[in-house]
Every structure is written in C-alpha cells, then in structure tokens.
Write a protein that binds this DNA or RNA. Structure first.
Lengths: 203, 203
DNA sequence: AATATATTTTGACCTACATCAAAAAAAAGT
DNA sequence: ACTTTTTTTTGATGTAGGTCAAAATATATT
C-alpha cells in the first residue's frame, strides 16, 4: 500500500462525509481520488442552530459542504430578511457574489438546525478546477442544476398565485417545508407570514 | 504551417465570431486552439426577427451562440407568455431543462431582432467538456455568472416595488430596454403592461 | 409544572398592482 | 401619402395580498 492509498483509508475512517460524497457523485462521476483531493483541504465545523455562517457586507471566501443539517440563505433589505434559498445535507452553500467576484457580498447564510459542515477555501477550489477536469465538470454541473432550480422558482413567482406557489413548494421540497418555520417559507415564496397562514387554513 | 494552423486561419477568415470569441475569453482564459475545437462544430444560422428558435414541449439539444442580434426566452402558461431572459451578441441561449436532462422543455426562445447565431449540439459540447479542461471551466464560469445574474433578478423581485424594478433594469440592462418593446419588459419584470406604462408616465 | 419565548393564527383595514377596454401614437406595408 | 398593424397610453374598476396588532398555540427553559 502506497501513501496515497493510506491517505484515502485515513480520510474514510476519520471524515464523516458520506452525504457529501454521494451528492458529488450524483452530479458528476467523480473518482474517489478526486474527492480525496478535495476533501483533504476540508476544515470541519460544528455549527449550532441559528448560527450565522456567512455575513453579508464582509468577505468570506469559503465554500461550505453540508454533511448534516440545514441552512438558510437570505439578504437583508431595509432591516427585513428575504430568504433566497435553503441548503441541506449534500448541498453546498456560499455567498455567490463574494465567491465569484471577491467583493463583499449581500448574502447571509445561517443555520436552521445544528449543522455539520466542511469548508474549503475558494482559492484551493479554483486551483483544483484548473488542474482536475473531473472537479471542473462537477462544478459545472452543480451550477447548471442550481441555475435550473432557480429558474423554476422564478417562473413559479412570475406565473402562480401565492397559494399555488405554496402548494408547488410542498411538492418540490416537502422536507424543507417540515424543517423550517413558516416565516422563512413565506419569505422564500415572497408572501407575508399572515397570508401564508391564511392559505394553510383554507380547506 | 501544419494543417492545424491552416484550420485556424481558415476559420478566422470564414467565420464571423468575434463577439462570441471575446465573450468566451471574458468568462475564462480559453486558448484560440480550444475555441477552434468548439467552433469547428458550429452550424451557422441567419434568423429573421420573431423567429422561434427553440419551441417548448419538444426536444432541441443545441446551444446557440449569438454573434449578432437579440433573443428572448419565455415560457407559455395558460396562453400567456412570460419572458424569462434576454440574450444578445456574445451570449449563449438554449432551453435549460431540455439541454440538461434531455426531456421536452418548457422554454421557448424567439428572436427579437434579425439574429446571426451558431449552434452546436450538446452531445459534441459534452464530449468537449469531458476532454478539454479549458472548455469545462468556461462552461462552469458561464453558469456561475448566469446563476448570479438570475439570483439578483429574483432578489429584485422579492424586495422591490414595480417602479424600483423597472429603474433597476434600466440601470443594469439599458441596451435591452431600448431594443425590446414594453410588453416584453413588463413580462420580464412580472408586472402588467399598463402598470409599466403608468410608471414611465410618472415624472 | 410553571414561566418565558418563539411561532402561528386571526381580525380589521388598506394599497399596489391587475384586468379589461378604448383611444392615441408609432411603425410597417402597399 | 395612405392604410393596416403594432405598440403604448390612459381610464374605470376590482382584488390579491399587504400591514399592523392582538390572541392563541406551541416550544423551550428553569
């Protein structure tokens, strides 16, 4: 057994990254060797619930891979939080603008549940993108799928009533709906908390 | 001069792809050789205005690189067209769902102006992604930037009034606003044509 | 179990924007 | 230049969903 294999064995033993590994492979057929190249730079985090991982207005150049738990991305406009996305086990989360353009971003990411996550610096990630074609393609496909999901959400917003949007969300992300409170769901759907409550009361 | 160089010379002479080439390089530092690998599969199209390039409900597995002109993506819900995006010279356009998942998509793409575009089959593109790390990373970065733009549009929708959204659009995409009619802009902003007209009449 | 805190529901009232239809203006075709 | 078609404006009226505040639940803390 050479040292490379030993590294893999060690990381399998010590790192709890099954959800992350499966998710990566679901997007693109990345080899274990490439996943090891990525995960050897992982820094582990145990965040309690309601912990702000990424704060708007400052620079945080890390990507967070979520192994367990649930986070909520939002932006703060005139003192009001507008939820833009939820990320759960197997997902990645980060501030888009900050990560891509290295400027202070507008997005916050906060845990909804106690969360086990691994961070990797975008500098390291960018080096891997430039060197490892599997990781580059994994990154491409992840972004394709994010784009598609966001497009669907936007089309729902353009074409549906508040009630229809809530029903669509229940269908598309049933687990999210049962894990976060109504305020966050209302905000994500772009409706007020009282309207959402009334919608649920119907029938 | 070997035949590879001759190919490049020929394609520079015969293909009018300057906007496309500059745009690709703006996203990621792709070499001329890689661009040639891509563009040698290009099929040229001269579309008149109001031509439907991609029709929802059927499968069109091509990506269109726009060299000149302007297109509008929309989806059709209950007989109403909802504009989701505009693409102009240097941009690419395609049906997201159809391209990524090989199923009949919900998106239409139609020219707004007479348009010079080059298509490439997604099968060819996927082969290039798997073989050429520059192209894979170009694809990744394009999708990152699309995601960021779409996220910004969605946040505007969640946080701004109709008037503010129109003003934001004027700032962000002034050229689009002057090249398409109000109906499309209203639809993109998610407001009615009459409301948009009234907003413009103010002050 | 009792108290404190967070979440959800309900009520009363309001407004930004929708809808529908007709008129005006602009652009395109002959 | 005149007609036809498309685009934009304007008017009258309606409504989905907002706001604010209080009550009712549910959850967490001691």
């Amino acid at each position: 057994m050479n040292s490379c294999i030993w590294n893999i064995v060690l990381f399998v033993i010590f790192m709890d990254i099954n959800n992350i590994r499966n998710s990566i492979k679901k997007y693109y057929p990345v080899t274990d060797e490439s996943i090891e190249q990525l995960s050897r730079h992982f820094k582990i985090h145990h965040f309690p619930a309601k912990h702000i991982i990424i704060r708007g207005g400052i620079i945080d150049r890390n990507v967070y891979f979520i192994e367990k738990g649930l986070t909520r991305s939002y932006c703060l406009v005139d003192g009001v939080e507008h939820t833009t996305w939820f990320s759960k086990e197997g997902d990645i989360t980060f501030g888009l603008l900050c990560l891509y353009h290295n400027v202070a971003g507008f997005e916050f990411v906060e845990t909804v549940e106690p969360t086990l996550a691994y961070s990797i610096s975008v500098n390291v990630l960018n080096e891997l993108y430039d060197r490892n074609i599997e990781i580059a393609n994994w990154g491409r496909v992840v972004h394709q799928e994010c784009l598609l999901s966001l497009q669907c959400v936007r089309i729902d917003n353009l074409t549906m009533t508040a009630k229809e949007r809530y029903q669509a969300l229940l269908r598309t992300f049933p687990d999210i709906c049962s894990r976060v409170n109504l305020g966050y769901i209302a905000s994500f759907l772009g409706i007020s908390l009282s309207t959402l409550s009334r919608i649920r009361a119907e029938r």
